[in-house]
Each structure stands twice: as C-alpha cells, then as structure tokens.
Design a protein around this nucleic acid. Structure first.
Length: 853
DNA sequence: GCAAGGTC
C-alpha cells in the first residue's frame, strides 16, 4: 500500500486537519524532535487505498545566513555583504532537528501533500520541506507533489482543498527567498558599519548594537517623527466664548459656541459684545436622535495588541508570550491572525455556553443564550486563522495575573461580538444669544448592549439636559471671552505605533511586537508612563542623520517599495535573480553614499555624545604601553587605551573593578574582576586574552576561570575543583575573592555553590580525589569557630566525597544524587586536564611563542 | 554581535 505524507505549518494544524480528514479516527505519536506529532489513518488517494501520515514543521525549516567567515566583523568590510559574501541556508532551529525528522517520516512515502499556510511564507516553506524530503521519497511515475489550498480550518474547506489539489507556486517561494536575501544583506551591512563606526568614536552611546533594518528603522522613524512635531510645536493663543445659561432653579448649563474659537482677541471681543446685547438665550431647536455604538468585530492579533498595550499596560512582546501560553494550554484559539470574521460554521453558541458560569459575565452570557445571539458584524477573512476566541472556561486562579487579564479581555471581546449594539439618545439644544449661536448636547443610554461586558466603552452617565422646546428662553448666567492655548501632541503611544505600522505594512501580526521590542532594547526608545514611546538621544540622532543623508532609509515606504519589486517575482513577471541584483545594486549605492556622508551624521552625534578618548575613568593598565586604560561603563562596557587607540571588550551585565593590580603572565595586562552582583558569581579576566584567546582550546570571551594556562595562579587549572553539578562541560571554580562567604561558581552556567562559610582560607590543593577525580580543597578555620571535628582548624579533602566536609558544602547532597552516588566514576574525564606536570617554558618570550597560537 | 519571517 502506498503512503501519502502530508505536512502542515505547525503541530496544532496537523492535528486539526488530520482529525477532519480521518473523521476523528487517526492514531497519533510524537516525532523524534519532541515538538511535532505524526497522525496516521487509512484512506483513499487518487483512486487507490493508501496510508496517510499527517505531520508538520514549526514554521520555517531553514534560515539564511552568510557563510562562516563573513560573520567576522573585524575582518569583513560590510560593503562585501552586498554581493561578494556567499549566503547559505542553515536549519532555522537546530534543536528541532527538523530536516532529520522530515526525512525519517518521508522515507518510503510515495506522495506528499503540502498543507502549509496559504501565504507566500507558506509557499516558501513548501520548498524547504521538498528540499528535505524528496531525496528520500520513493520515486513514482505519476505526479508525486501536491499542494492543498485552504482558506479556513473547517470540514468543508479542508475537504474541498483535498479534492482540488494543485501544485506549490515556485514564483511565490522565490519572492520570499529574495526578501530574505535582501533583508539579510542590507540589514547586516548597515548594522555592522554604523555599529563599528559610532562605537569606535563615541564613548557614551549606551547601546551594544546600533542596528538598522527595513522594519525596525521606520518603526523608530514614527517615534522620532512625533518627537519632532512636539519639539517644533509653537503654541497659539485662541479665544472662545464661554456661556452659561439656566432655567428656573436648574443648575446652569455650559454651552458650546458654534464658531468654536477665533484666533484674534478683538474679533472674539466683538462677538461677546454682540451676544451681550441679549440677557436671554432663545431655544431655536431641540433635536433627539437615536445613535448606535457598534459592537466590535471579531478579534485579531493587532487589535488585541493595541488594547493590551493601552488598557492592560502590557507590551506587545509580553502579550504575545502570554497569548501563546493561553493557546498552548487550550484556553484561547490561535493568537496570530489577521482575520476579523468568524468562519460560517463557527459554533458561536457553544463557545458562549462555556462562559455561562463565570461569575464576572455569567449574567450577560445567560441573557444572550436565552434571548438569542446577535449576528456578528461582517469582518474581513484573510484566510489565515479564525479570530481569537476563548476555547474553554477558566478561572482567575488557574491563569496567573497577566494570563487572566488577557483572557478576561479576549472573552469579553468575544461576548461583545455576539451582543447587541449599544443604543443611546443624543439630545441637542440649539440656542441663540443675541446674534450668536450656541448649543449643548447630552447622551442618555437606551440599552447598554455589548457595553455591559465592555464597561470601559459604555456611555458615561451624565446629568440629563433640562426638558425644553423651541421658543423657550433661558436666563444668561455668564458670558465671557476665555483665552486658551493650543497644546502640542503627546508622544506616540504603543497602540498608535501599532496602527501606523499596520497601515504602512511594516512587519506582520507576528513580527510587529518584535520590531517594537527591538527599538526599545537597542536603546533607541524608552517606554514612558501610559506606554508612550519617547525616543532617546541616540534614536533621535540616528533618524535625523538618515533624513540628512538619505531619507529613504527611514521612510515607511522603504518596505513597500521593495515589496512591489518582490511581487513581480511572485507574479512571474520578473526574474528572481534580476530583481535581486537590481534591488541590491540600489542599496549598495545607498550604502556607499551613506558611508561617504557619515561626517554629516557625525555633526549630529557630536552634539549629544562624547568622543571615546574623553569617556570613562582610568581603571587598569595596558600591557603594551603600561598606561592606564579607561573603563567605559556605557553599553557596551569596554576598556579603551587612548595611547594605543585600542578598545577591549568586557563581559556585559555586571560590574568591573580592578583585581588587586595583578597582571596576566602572558601579556602583562592588569587583570580586572567581573561581578554579576553582590552575592553572585565573579571571576578575574585579562582584558587582552578576553578578546584574543591565548590557547588553542579557548574561545573569545573567556575569563581566567576558563583559561588553560598551566601554571598561572588565576587560571582554571589552578582554581578548578570539579565538574559542574548541573551543566555539561562546566567546571566549578573557586572564587578566591568570595571569602568569608566562600563559594565556587561554574565557569559555564550560573551555578554557584556556597561552602566553608567563615573559613579563614580556602585553597585548591594539587592532589585529586581518588574516588571522583575532583581537586582536593584545603580549608583553614579560626580556632574559636571551627566547625571541624575535635576542634581541628585545618582539613584537606574532596568537597564531594569527604565525610568531614559533608555539612559544610551547600549542594553536597544534590550533587551526590546527580552523580548517581559516584556511578559515573571513571566515565568521561573530569575535563580539567590538570594531571601531569606541564613543563614550564624557560622565559617569557618562549612562553608567549608557545601560548599565542 | 547583524535582518525579518515563520513558530515552540
């Protein structure tokens, strides 16, 4: 019997589609990567009996990157990234082992049906899947590759797709390939160039990365545009007539002037004088209109993000993480969708019934169930996923604070979509006072409709307008000219930014949160009270710089202009290679122009930032010139030797101080001590070795706790104790600065083990433990407070095995269990390589020759 | 260390 492999874009869809096509009769098992499942069932295909295997990928299988050597920022000129640097496809998520998984499942299959999402990205993933599986599939004479086209996950749609299989569209896939390559080459070239240029020149930029991208840069542009409007705002004075009238014993009504405002005081005064000729206000007309506030459309991602930001105070990134969790746990439907229209067969009533026992909205739900659901408003069906709805009842306690708040909103929104509109009566009374016209209006609620579950949208209670009719007169209580000023706009709110991004096609529902998060993380924008986005100096200068040199780099049209080119590929009207070359050429020229114009950007930078040579405070001495290097604390923190004009990287996210003026035996640089926090991990490092690994088995970014120097007293070889209790390959290293709260810390992960508190001295001995091969540790306690048996003050033993140490090492028991009571003894080496006596080189030059490989 | 796009 032949086998048909079917592949969807994500595990949840594979399950939904398999359930529909197998009519609920499929067997399921987990795939080898743990993330994807395989659902199998018998059926018929192209007139023959077959076995179906339905599975999925997890989004893109591959992602594009430069080949290895072009990822060296120090050796590659960013201009080479436009054409010379070759790219390669790498597995998007190596942990998922997706290619292997697909091949295992595809081996022996005869046909494949591609059920990827029906958009360009999905079309591209079709070919990623085919590239992986075609080499291992059986060869059949007839067509073996099919594409299912569906616009919703409903029985009819899925069966219809199965009955009308087509072929994957290579042109659409190629347009995505082109987009990937353009984004990569352009983004990385500009990012690397401006990062290196500005970081080498200014000391207080406070950003580890000065990135550029066709989505993130326009995103920043929107925020700066608003900032500029605020800055250039000139308040204008204007005048309004304030009129108060009353009738009988009613409290006075404040009226609105029909001319609203005037910008000339004299003119305003003239109108006041005209109005003042009369002491009564004449009612000209009273109108009552029934108005409707429409119930919302079904919820999509962008709307959810906006409300979460403006009403729940949650960032888009955080909102999506919470929504993802609610989705995985089955509380809500798939949270990434553009669609605002429920599928025709959507069980609205069933979904609503599940909410009928929730204390917060049970009353409204029960009322709806008994009087009947309102038909949802027509939305747009983009054919991706149904709108976001609750899938099962939940209580506050089981979801956690933010989880509940988001679920609460999603559910209320859902109930609102099947509720009645809110109806209210708007009453407007038109007055004349002298020859000037005024009015006042008020709203009274007729029926709350959906605002019963979305009270924040309700009609606010107002004092009712007095009953009156045409011809009535009111007494004028007060009439005067009031001076006011126009006020500047406020900073862009996150919700407004999302609206702008959506309008200009910057990013997608799934990527908008990422771009906003990026501009915050890169220190271009800060989030102020009320989730308002205020650009930083760096953000402002960058955008102004682009405007000065090449405004297209920051305009929101940069994306759509490229998309237009790309659509030619997907429509088959232009050749993929030609479009790519053409667009790359344009951006290559822009890049060179940008590089040439960088002095004009510098003019802006100089105003806000200080030159690197004038930044920082002296800290440790350079090994080459023996002068003090300056420690620059602003991100990325680093050491700068102004004499040698060299910058040395440091570990981030911690504090740096001088380490007792001790020097690295290899290069004479003064060591510095990195500390993660008051009770955290700390280790010394050599500023030179950190960027220039001295031994072949070391990598960039290693401190002395990973240094394999055979004899240096600060090295791993001297201070390493034993294998880490949690991670693979890490070694617990004595922190010689930690006393009297002595500890050892893993040189790879974050494990910190406290031991021998209040010991006077703790040292790593030359000898190793017979049982577990860990280095022995020698401790020395004060006579008066020694915890050692029989009042002894000194003891040397293994921190893992020595019974004397048992109660003095915090993680002892966990350690023993983890090691299976020593069962792993003699297994893999302990990885410290400190056995044997390495020969000491005769002099320093020989040592350097030996070490600097 | 870089982009943007999928998704876990």
């Amino acid at each position: 019997m032949r086998t048909v492999l079917m592949v969807a874009e994500k595990p949840s869809l594979a399950l939904s589609i398999a359930k529909i096509l197998s009519k609920g009769n499929c067997t399921s098992r987990k795939g080898l990567n743990g993330a994807c499942s395989v659902h199998e069932y018998p059926g018929s295909f192209q007139g023959q009996s077959v076995r179906f295997k339905m599975t999925s990928v997890c989004g893109h299988v591959m992602s594009l990157d430069f080949i290895g050597k072009y990822n060296n920022w120090d050796k590659v000129d960013p201009a080479e990234l436009f054409s010379k640097a070759p790219t390669e496809k790498k597995e998007a998520n190596p942990k998922l082992n997706m290619v292997k998984f697909l091949q295992v499942e595809a081996r022996g299959c005869d046909y494949v049906v591609l059920w990827l999402d029906c958009d360009k990205e999905g079309e591209n993933i079709c070919f990623e899947v085919l590239d992986a599986i075609q080499p291992v599939m059986n060869r059949v004479r007839e067509q073996s590759v099919y594409r299912a086209k569906f616009s919703s996950i409903t029985d009819t749609d899925i069966w219809n797709a199965m009955d009308h299989l087509g072929e994957p569209n290579r042109n659409e896939a190629l347009s995505v390939d082109a987009r990937q390559e353009l984004d990569l080459r352009i983004g990385c070239a500009f990012t690397r160039f401006q990062t290196k240029y500005f970081q080498g020149k200014y000391g207080n930029l406070d950003s580890t990365l000065i990135s550029f991208g066709p989505c993130q840069t326009p995103t920043l542009g929107f925020c700066v545009e608003r900032h500029d409007k605020i800055q250039s705002f000139k308040p204008e004075t204007y005048w309004v007539i304030q009129a108060k009238v009353f009738k009988g014993k009613d409290s006075p009504l404040t009226l609105d002037w029909s001319r609203v405002r005037v910008f000339d005081r004299e003119v305003g005064q003239m109108f006041v004088n005209l109005a003042k000729t009369s002491r009564v206000a004449q009612v000209e007309s009273v109108s009552k209109k029934e108005k409707v506030k429409q119930r919302p459309q079904a919820l999509n991602t962008v709307e959810m993000l906006k409300v979460a930001s403006s009403s729940l105070g949650m960032s888009p990134q955080h909102t999506m993480q919470i929504a993802e969790r609610l989705y995985i746990q089955g509380y809500i439907s798939y949270p990434r969708t553009e669609t605002t229209h429920y599928p025709e067969n959507f069980d609205l009533k069933g979904a609503l019934k599940q909410q009928s026992s929730n204390p917060y909205w049970a009353e409204e739900v029960k009322a709806l169930l008994s009087t009947g659901l309102n038909h949802p408003r027509k939305g747009s069906d983009v054919g991706d996923h149904p709108p976001i709805t609750p899938m099962r009842a939940a209580s506050e306690g089981e979801l956690g604070s933010d989880g509940w708040r988001l679920y609460d909103y999603i559910t209320r929104h859902f109930i609102a979509t099947v509720s009645q509109d809110c109806k209210y009566l708007q009453t407007t009374i038109d007055f004349t006072i002298g020859s000037e016209a005024f009015s006042c209006s008020g709203k009274t609620l007729i029926s709350a409709g959906y605002t019963a579950v979305m009270p924040w949208q309700g009609i606010p209670l107002e004092e009712a307008l007095p009953a009156c009719e045409r011809g009535d007169t009111f007494t004028v209580d007060e009439i005067k000219l009031v001076e006011k000023q126009t006020s500047p706009p406020d900073y862009l709110t996150e919700a407004e930014l999302i609206t702008l991004m959506e309008k200009h096609g910057i990013g997608t529902d799934a990527s908008i949160p990422v771009h906003i998060n990026n501009v915050c993380q890169r220190n271009y924008v800060t989030v102020e009270n009320g989730r308002k986005l205020k650009p930083t100096n760096l953000g402002i200068v960058l955008v102004h710089g682009y405007y000065k040199t090449d405004a297209e780099l920051v305009l929101p049209t940069i994306r759509s202009a490229v998309e237009k080119q790309l659509s030619l590929i997907s429509l088959g009207k232009a050749n993929h290679q030609q479009v790519l070359q053409h667009t790359l050429d344009i951006f290559k020229r822009k890049f060179h122009y940008f590089v040439d114009s960088i002095p004009s950007m510098d003019e802006l930078m100089e105003v806000s930032f200080s030159p690197i040579a004038a930044s920082g405070k002296p800290l440790s001495r350079c090994g080459k010139c023996h002068r003090f290097m300056k420690y620059i604390q602003a991100k990325p923190s680093r050491l700068h030797c102004s004499h040698c004009d060299e910058t040395y990287s440091l570990p981030q996210n911690g504090a740096i101080k001088l380490y007792k003026e001790l020097r690295c035996p290899l290069d004479e640089f003064e060591l510095v001590l990195w500390t993660s926090g008051p009770r955290g991990k700390s280790y010394p490092l050599c500023p030179y070795c950190f960027s220039n690994p001295p031994f072949r088995d070391m990598k960039k970014g290693m401190g002395c706790n990973e240094c394999t120097h055979p004899s240096c007293q600060h090295s791993l070889n001297s201070l390493g104790i034993g294998q880490c209790v949690e991670c693979d390959g890490g070694v617990l290293v004595l922190d010689p600065t930690s006393g009297p709260k002595w500890r050892m810390a893993c040189n790879t992960c974050n494990v910190v083990v406290h031991f021998f508190e209040h010991a006077h001295r703790v040292q790593v001995a030359q000898e190793s433990c017979e049982a577990c091969d860990a280095s022995l540790v020698a401790v020395d306690f004060n006579k008066t407070r020694t915890p050692l048996p029989a009042g002894e003050t000194q003891h040397t033993g293994c921190v893992f095995c020595d019974p004397v140490f048992q109660d003095l090492v915090e993680l002892k028991h966990a350690t023993m269990r983890y090691r299976g009571g020593g069962a792993r003894r003699g297994g893999r080496g302990r990885g410290r390589g400190r056995r044997g006596n390495p020969k000491k080189p005769k002099d320093k030059m020989a040592a350097l020759a030996a070490y600097f490989v």
